[in-house]
Design a protein around this nucleic acid. Sequence first.
DNA 1: TTGCTCCTCACGTCACGTGAGGTGGC
DNA 2: TTGCTCCTCACGTCACGTGAGGTGGC
Lengths: 271, 271
Amino acid sequence: MKENELLSIKTFSEYTGVKQHILRHYDEIGIFQPVVRGENNYRYYSPQQITALNMVNVLSDTRVLLREIGELQHERSPEIVLDVLQKHERGIDAELRKLHDAYAIIHMYQHLILEGMLANEKELTLRDMEEFPIFLGPENTFSDEGLFYPDFIEFSKYAREHGINMSYPVGGWFENMDAFIKSPSSPTRFFSTSPRGTERKPAGKYLVGYTRGYYGPMGDLPEKFRVYAAENRLQFVGPVFVIYVLDEVSEKDPDNYLAQVAVQVMKKRLR
Amino acid sequence: MKENELLSIKTFSEYTGVKQHILRHYDEIGIFQPVVRGENNYRYYSPQQITALNMVNVLSDTRVLLREIGELQHERSPEIVLDVLQKHERGIDAELRKLHDAYAIIHMYQHLILEGMLANEKELTLRDMEEFPIFLGPENTFSDEGLFYPDFIEFSKYAREHGINMSYPVGGWFENMDAFIKSPSSPTRFFSTSPRGTERKPAGKYLVGYTRGYYGPMGDLPEKFRVYAAENRLQFVGPVFVIYVLDEVSEKDPDNYLAQVAVQVMKKRLR
DNA sequence: TTGCTCCTCACGTCACGTGAGGTGGC
DNA sequence: TTGCTCCTCACGTCACGTGAGGTGGC
């Protein structure tokens, strides 16, 4: 390759890794043009343009608008470009957060759905569960005839105000088993499974049960928990966590939604 | 709010955090429709739809195409949704990688440009430099009359084949100071500053100089390095790193490109 | 002659975003 | 009556992607 040898669009495309139709597009909108147009209207690029094109690649990779790149083609300096990069850094940060959320939400749902598919719905089981970050909402009021929507909406707003993506699965939190048994469809608070939460569902030995149906009703689970604990000399420790492992995301029929109820337990001391 | 109370699009939008025109768009393309259309053609949503909409939010947040979400509206099960999520996990992974690159590239260029703006171009300076990951290319041949393009193109291809984004700044690597002095415009290899590199530019005390101009010529730097080392009883250790802190990204005029040359040094032992 | 390269033109895609112009409810 | 809500229609945006139909070089 001589210094003044010119490259066809095919060659230039191969050398730079930028596709031909993108090069034509860049030409068309005026942000990067071949040094020469042949008499047959062919585009010819110089070897120097291989590195020059890098300016476009760097900026478009960092999400600078092509329009803005075009403006920078005509006038740019270290100061100006530094400014542009600083501006776009925030955009990238925001996108990165969103994508991290998307990633975590996918994994959360994969985990829950699998859990739902393998769930033992017949009887309660004792399981070791891992620690888990949660974002706890304000206390619910259930002022509206026991409907959960108003409180749920309040929680949604509250969570969004705290930068929590509401696409993370949401669960119900009862301060203890007594609260759960007393009114199983009215959690003391809601929680999001967003990893941005600062509270924890602690690791430990949990008693776990499942029940089918639309949000709220817990069927015979409260009674089952009471009986199981009595028969096995267990006592309940800390809050009760209710989470729908199968919900509107994976089930069409609300009657098939599957709730998981989990509460930490300890052996009762004999006296 | 009663169970059967219906919500206007405004209210529903506020409760769900999804903008009105998006809700109309979802309606139009048939992926999520209000339970009722008033005789005035107003859209009315049920409270149950607040949670139902979540299915659309979760899947669109995880980059599932609206078309595919529409298909899932009619037929979905834990198995099917699990499949869909698994498929989109890869897409998210790829996007996340790209965005991480974008983030790192922005910071790399900010760092280099700032370095260029503050550079002491008059004289060599001794500086402590931090460790740095680099991706080293194959040995250059300079078979083509000393032009760097063919080797650079080879390096680009090689890097891309190894999943290295070529928008990271690229530098020249000389195996030692003798090689640099012998042919300052012909680096032994090229390197990318991509953090995916497995080699290192080691931390340590470096002698650093700058020179202006288009890629290749190093001006009087080789001589300056030789003299400085002799006068200060220093010996050069390891490879020479040449990187353009101001390049086509931040400078319009190639004559203003600014190269930084850095080599690790040690005090010479007196005998 | 043949297949390859290159060209322009035009329309499609994706998930919105914007705004005009008009109706209807409290 | 007034301002608010809601409607449809239509066009814009962003960075491409696709394909038709035709020319030109070796």
